[in-house]
Design a protein around this nucleic acid. Sequence first.
DNA 1: TTTACTATTGCAATCGATTGCATGAATTTT
DNA 2: AAAATTCATGCAATCGATTGCAATAGTAAA
Lengths: 342, 342
Amino acid sequence: MEKEITIYDIAKLLNLSPATVSRALNDHPAINSNTKSVIAAKAKEMGYRSNTFASNLRRQRTDTIGVIVPRLNSHFMSTVLAGMEKVVNKSSYNLIISQSLESVKKEIANAKTMFNSRVDGLLVSVAYDTDNTDHFDAFVKRGIPLLFFDRVLEHKQGTSIIIDNTKAGYEAVSHLIEQGCRRILYITGNLKRNVYADRLKGYRLALLEHGLPYLDELVMVTDLSQEAGIEAARLIQRMDKKPDGLFIANDLCAVSCMSALRKNGFSIPDDIAVVGFNNDPVSVVIEPNLTTIDYPGEKMGEIAAQSLINHLNGSLDIQNTNTIILHSELLIRQSSVKKGAN
Amino acid sequence: MEKEITIYDIAKLLNLSPATVSRALNDHPAINSNTKSVIAAKAKEMGYRSNTFASNLRRQRTDTIGVIVPRLNSHFMSTVLAGMEKVVNKSSYNLIISQSLESVKKEIANAKTMFNSRVDGLLVSVAYDTDNTDHFDAFVKRGIPLLFFDRVLEHKQGTSIIIDNTKAGYEAVSHLIEQGCRRILYITGNLKRNVYADRLKGYRLALLEHGLPYLDELVMVTDLSQEAGIEAARLIQRMDKKPDGLFIANDLCAVSCMSALRKNGFSIPDDIAVVGFNNDPVSVVIEPNLTTIDYPGEKMGEIAAQSLINHLNGSLDIQNTNTIILHSELLIRQSSVKKGAN
DNA sequence: TTTACTATTGCAATCGATTGCATGAATTTT
DNA sequence: AAAATTCATGCAATCGATTGCAATAGTAAA
């Protein structure tokens, strides 16, 4: 087991002071470039690695950004994370990732951990049932920048990065209506979450614009899991007046619902047309392929991370830039295109 | 912006020494329990949070465990991570997660980062093209315990946590043979990886045992992506002697291959029976539902983390426990059950 | 009453890197 | 040649928590 090398070891060997070694290793302009290269060479030779703790302790910062997401195992989320990592690495920051598993309780615990590990900034997409922002207050108080993405909270200063869910919902539902649907069921997640509430707004808007009535019974709140999709199919089966269109706020759920419906003898898109959300890879696995909303995950990650870093570097004030809206797009596939339409 | 509270602030206010405060907060037995509660109360009141860096610097450990995985966005991986988190939280360790995106280059970078952040231990599932373990040598040299799971490397001391891929492959292929398949195509990932190589062994074993010939042309090496599944379907289409069974080492790939095959007019399972691997949720979305190998992800995560922690606590020597094998299981669904068989 | 413990608490050094403020040498300006 | 700059480096304090080694008070044993 080898001994850990410090700047003192290097300094002693080169007859220099630790201060000089430290400055050299940080490429400080006051240090002679010859000295720098000598020190760099020696450091490498001795297998020196900087002690982050000493450094962090002294500098009062960690170069670390925390990320709290509901779940890791969605195509969307891991794309977002990839985008964040890309940006963050370039600026030599680090990422600490944790998942709330859709529970506020765990989210609170995660926030506390992040706080205690003194992240320089925090990127959050909130859980299913997060109600208030109390657990983030500590960050605000200490001036640690906080940025929400995708699933954002209402009464927050600080920046949010989102897509225009209202518009996306509007487009999805308009498309269904254009395909001849007249009774469109919206299967959604918790309406506390902006993403689902806004899509509902879009849904209502589309109905309104096309002169269709809005009916409470055609909005079904679920947890958008695969089981929820199956359960939804069961409920549809039992409905007196069956829907002829489905707008489901998550592809995975949509897909399991579709497959359950087909087992029950429904034909898609002819009996029921379906539009999902997220453009998950599974959407092109299912037959018929699922019409869905494509969602720029990687870019969202990049922009979120970049905004935070810019703020940390002082080149952008997050407080002033309030909301960044990214572009999303309806991808029309077979699941929603009725033969007779157009 | 509030000032950060330290043990010195608490000490001063209570007319005690910082040493006492530190001991009290760490529940040291030498401290009077009244004193302890007074200090605890004051700390809470003042909003004290321990400075991890100072602590880590002094104690020369971080209570942090690093995890490097190929990708986050698989059902399997996020289940593993959930298992790890569970265990790790219970022992008040933290997790740093990073993904190699299947590239050695990134894996090397990740390892370096982990090393520099001085993780107390490292859990790794290697990338597609990782050849050697040089980038982990630094850990071994410094005595930092290293544990591989699922995708493990050969010439390593230290523990590995795996399933018996040979047995799983054997069972999958035996099942296909029992269903009447005689030409079984194995679609695999890089054979450098134990998981894929071992499944191949099982494949060969099953053929051998049932008196079927092993043919090189019936092993197709791909990257197991969705595109690879489609490409595989195209190749099958072009084969003179078509296979009547498919064993595909990954559900997502299997599923896209199936759906491409069906588009080309193949009937599943009658023309071609299919078995996948991982029991990904998508396996019950596809029609017909995919027969697959169920893989205890959460448990794998738990055991991996627990073994590492036990080692760190000195209650288990990782060097001696060399390989832990978990139980896996063949889940038979419609994609592989031929009507005529049995 | 003296000695021996035990229970609590404090002192002060330590972990390794950073940085404001000198210091001394070399170079330029007047 | 003296004064003013510039360049390169060192000194020493600092970040906050931990811990070996006292020190003190209180209690029990002799």
